[in-house]
Amino acid sequence: MSTTGLEYDGADLGKDALLRVEDLRKEFGGIVATDATLGVERGSLTGLIGPNGAGKSTLFNLVSGFLDPDAGRVYLDGVDVTDRRPDEIAQRGLLRTFQTPRTLEGMTVRESLLVAPFDQPGESILPLYFQPGSVTDTERELLGRAQQLLEAFEIDHLATTPSTELSGGQSKLVELARAMMTDPYVLLLDEPVAGVNPVLEAELTDHIRRLNDRGVTFLVIEHDMDFIMDIADPIIVLNQGRVLVEGSPEAVRTDERVLDAYLGGVS
């Protein structure tokens, strides 16, 4: 585990796609929400787009363990994680964000970053009373790391601000910084720039690129076409739960099926 969370360890993760989804299927009341097969290559910044109701968020919930699929498998780095709990999947290095930013009532920004790292000694009760020194050491290390990340994301002035007092864009930055506290291999971002002003959007874009350059794999849902076409490659288009097209931004932009799907979704 790196100390700052900014460098990627580059551990050997196998040769296949880092995240593979095979025939992953979920129905709600007889209506198929998702029935997809796709892969996210190691080190890629993959975009996931599609009209409303295409099953993008359902797919995220299935992959991250928040929903149980009716059929199909999910492999993370070659390991079957289909029936794993969300926290187990997170511990394997797949972190996700939520569409509506989750604010932690009663906690400051700094606290909300400190909670993220896995397996802190102070998360068990006994060490608090019998090895308070080791708890203090870890806390000190984590505080330093949180400070570095807050500085890297240029939000260190918000450290002691209550989470509930952040703007939408600030929450998105905090979410990203919080996820980085855990050194993830894969980050699933659900609409990272929705409701974010252009200045912060440019900042977020830079941060995502920077992290991707350092080896973090991204799968990003976004409705903002300019943003996703600018940042992601390849792009996967979902429609009615299935993968319609997968390819470079140019290929997707010029594909008539994609246009049809979006027009169909509008009418």
Binding site: P86, E105, E123
Partner: peptide
């Protein structure tokens, strides 16, 4: 009070505010 100020208490506060988020951060809620 020691519990509350500890990382253990921090996870509990996260669960109270948003259990899904706590799970997404790898906590066995």
């Amino acid at each position: 009070r020691r519990l509350q100020l500890s990382p253990w208490g921090r996870v509990q506060r996260t669960i109270r505010a948003d259990e899904d988020l706590a799970q997404a951060l790898g906590k066995n809620t």
